[in-house]
């Protein structure tokens, strides 16, 4: 299927950890992306908006740079219909707000500070994610 990439994946992880440490150590904020983005559709105080856009802007700039310099790194590699993608987005948007975090907020930052909630949340989304992938492979031949 895919090549196993322990070195680049570990290095990428280290950068993610450094980024989260920077945001926490300097700004006192947890680098949880669903929370940073999701709260923008709510009424947040005026001074609580700009840093969210700045963080998300950093992510977008990374994507622009990657598309320019290493386009092969931004690549689906699996076959999904537009309907499946929109449905997946809805589930991820709704689910991460309801569960109070995603892979970054719960999976990295929460586990990193030994939060019971985050350990439980991570086990839950890993389990349902694995079950979903299994169902798509076994019942739909990996295409949806």
């Amino acid at each position: 299927m895919e090549h196993f990439t322990p070195i680049t994946s570990s290095l990428g992880g280290v950068l993610i950890g450094l980024s989260a440490a920077l945001l926490f150590g300097l700004n006192g904020r947890i680098a949880g992306i669903s929370g940073i983005a999701g709260r923008l559709v709510e009424k947040v105080p005026k001074g609580d908006i700009a840093w969210r856009f700045a963080f998300l802007g950093g992510l977008v700039v990374a994507g622009i740079g990657a598309a320019w310099l290493v386009p092969e790194t931004i690549h689906m590699g699996i076959s999904r219909s537009p309907a499946a993608l929109v449905a997946a987005g809805l589930l991820v948007g709704f689910g991460t707000r309801m569960g109070g975090g995603c892979t970054s907020g719960h999976g990295v930052c929460g586990i990193g500070r030994l939060s019971t909630r985050s350990v439980v949340a991570t086990l839950m989304f890993m389990a349902t994610g694995a079950a979903t992938v299994w169902i798509i492979r076994v019942l739909f031949g990996g295409v949806l």
């Binding site: 999904r80 709704f94 689910g95 989304f125 349902t128 694995a130 979903t132 992938v133």
Partner: peptide, 12 residues
């Protein structure tokens, strides 16, 4: 919420 997120994550 985390369960729903996982389904969307696995789906896409």
């Amino acid at each position: 919420g985390s369960s729903l997120f996982g389904i969307g994550w696995g789906l896409s």
